[in-house]
Amino acid sequence: MTRWLQDNMPKIVLAPSFIAVMVFVYGFIGWTAWVSLTRSRLMPRYEIDSFIQYGRLADSPRFETAMVNLAIFGTLFIVIAMVLGLLLAILLDQKIRIEGAIRTIYLYPMALSMIVTGTAWKWILNPELGIEATIKGWGFANFEFKWLVDPDMAIYTVVLAAVWQSSGFVMALFLAGLRSVDEEIIKAAQVDGIPTWRVYSAIIIPSMAPIFLSAFIVLAHLAIKAFDLVIALTGGGPGYATDLPATYMYAMAFSRGDIGQAASSAMVMMLVVFTIVVPYLYSELRTKDD
């Protein structure tokens, strides 16, 4: 008996986590997938009834807005955070004397809750008392800045706050990458008199391809999950102008009592994540096994 216990201890230790993952991750995904194929409303029902919920999603102008917003927000957020992060990393890589302090300043927003970030920016962008009033007070009487309450512009305030929060993290990733480039190659290029910008664009940046991929995955993941930031900054409004699939799902699940729509929109989110993450994880795990 003790011998058997001894031999199987690793499996016994892993078993509860294995069961938890199978039930609470994969079982739950299965449940949501199943319910997304039913006519569930206030209560979950389990009789499968084709793709009716997905049809309703496709017909819903609110969900369409949410998907368009995800595309706008996701693209701008990822591109701007990457470009800004890379720029900051390169600037900081020039033998800056107070690098540690500056790095701390650029990265601290990452420690904040999205609710805190949203609250702060909501106040700064306040159309009456925020930045608009401040600049008016400086003598620019005609200055207007009402993005937060403008249905066409509000989504860009979400981009702004999200970039503020996450670009420091991208900088940290890239800075670690810049530091890991082989110094000998750089020195050789300098001896040959190759200008600094060429050293970066032709040698250093191309060698960081895996870091670009990592940063992309993390940012894409943050973008799809962005929920708290929208809730705190715009509440999805004005109207539902800044709804994302995440806020749509939440509204359907907890305020509209439409479980079918909640489940199907969650599955759409899942699918978006799946197409981005699975190839990445697959390649990661394969190289790690070698």
């Binding site: 999950k225 699939p245 995440a246 969650a266 599955m267 899942m270 994880l281």
Partner: peptide, 12 residues
């Protein structure tokens, strides 16, 4: 993989 799922999918 469980690290990457959007939690909306397990909420209900």
């Amino acid at each position: 993989f469980g690290c990457f799922i959007p939690f909306q999918v397990v909420l209900l």
